[in-house]
Design a protein around this nucleic acid. Structure first.
Lengths: 241, 241
DNA sequence: CGGATGGTTGAGTAGCCTCAAAGTATGTGG
DNA sequence: CCACATACTTTGAGGCTACTCAACCATCCG
């Protein structure tokens, strides 16, 4: 077995060099040879905001690594009600192993770069390379933790706490290091999307944004640009730990 | 590598014979030798309703297989608000690999039999046996699907649809084969627990039970005993697909 | 028989939703 | 580069769903 830590750049396919998925994503489990094998079937592409990547209940035959941007996972009810059930960023893995029919839709939230490859190629490598499977398991466990945390948000929080939780989530993603002090970021979602993520309406989300602004917990510049002067204060506003 | 399908009962430790986890649970990935090794560290035990198995944020050093009964996974807010974030039955695996501090509590919902073993023993076997890791991955993916489905329930459904979804969930668990016709079952949760699962109050849950009864969608006998004459009608009441 | 536990029902209220309108970015073609 | 159309956001008024508080009922158990 190849020592993954000792891969020289010369062993790594050109397309894979400087790819975040090789460091923090699932490709970190692959040797130079394996990367080369996978890269032969790989397609890099970009997709713009609002583009649909996966239609709910459709058959999917490719997986992707997200190289940049953000993707939202959605569920739709017959009458049009929608719920966002996940938000993914680089270097997350996009796809549902072992099942071809997707149980959710996927839509670009903030312009993405994707690295896509056929389902069967990855699944073959999954059998051959246990460390790849381990990486995948860890990512899925992380997603499960996040999903459960969000169940608490959806089930038990007030509108204001929900919005604060969402802002806290984004702040954590932008700067996972410190959880106090100030942060500034651009929201990757529109008000309508935030509403679908939080199980609220657009109007309620908007009202809670203004409420948090009036409380001095956030500053808003031009809809999408948010300043959080004190992350502790924001965290307090979530009511959670 | 041992052919798992060809294990004779004589190779299987006595404690593992007739264990559901060996067929549908993660132990199905283990050879006779591996089962023997694991069973040396194994403790079987029972736990009664309301007993706390894991306290949120405590360190956990064991995993368990659920052999019978039901366990609820809970999250608590500082002010006492509670959300059930998962419901597990035999032969599910209980525990969060790779992390020792639990991000949720676990409490017995319906009297359980558990087969517990130390975290490190299983994690060693996980490295040695890729098929074990694969089983675990599949279970975690299943839980993730369920969690996301529940996010739709929590975020976008009315109280009545939520209760119908819960009853549908239990009906599916009792009889996964047919999804039409009639089913009868005992509820594994009290009204208070159902409320915590659905993000509602006890009173609202109770009212929706009576509403569904008056609609002829369910019959209720003595609080916990439920008859569903037509599962299609129940499914319709969930508003979902 | 009295208390404890769990469930139902009722009355009133609060929080979020609906509907409506006006305000503000964003983008396009002339 | 401006004028205009479009998409997105905010704000307001009123209504409905689910919550709160309270009383009552059923069952179980010492």
């Amino acid at each position: 077995m190849t020592e993954r830590k000792d891969i020289h750049n010369s062993d790594v396919p050109i397309v894979c060099r400087a790819c975040e998925a090789r460091h923090k994503g699932i490709c970190g489990a692959l040797s130079g040879d394996e990367l080369l094998r996978l890269s032969k079937h790989t397609v890099k592409r970009t997709a713009a905001r609002k583009q649909e990547l996966i239609h709910e209940e459709d058959e999917v035959h490719t997986y992707s690594n997200i190289l940049s941007g953000a993707v939202k996972l959605t569920k739709l009810m017959p009458d049009g009600r929608q719920q966002i059930v996940g938000l993914q960023f680089a270097p997350d893995f996009l796809g549902r192993p072992f099942v071809s029919e997707s149980s959710f839709g996927a839509e670009v939230a903030a312009d993405v770069k994707l690295c896509s490859f056929p389902k069967d190629v990855l699944e073959t490598m999954l059998v051959e390379n246990p460390e790849l499977e381990n990486r995948l398991l860890r990512q899925v466990l992380k997603e499960l933790d996040e999903a459960r945390q969000w169940m608490l948000v959806l089930g038990r929080m007030t509108a204001k706490e929900k919005v604060a939780s969402f802002l806290s989530l984004i702040a954590n993603h932008i700067d996972p290091e410190h959880d106090d002090g100030s942060v500034t970021f651009e929201l990757p979602l529109s008000r309508a999307e935030i509403a679908d993520y939080l199980g609220l309406t657009i109007e309620t989300v908007s009202r809670q944004f203004t409420a948090l602004r009036k409380d001095g917990i956030i500053e808003i510049e031009g809809n999408r640009h948010i300043v959080v002067p004190d992350r502790e204060a924001l965290k307090d506003a979530t009511g959670s730990t």
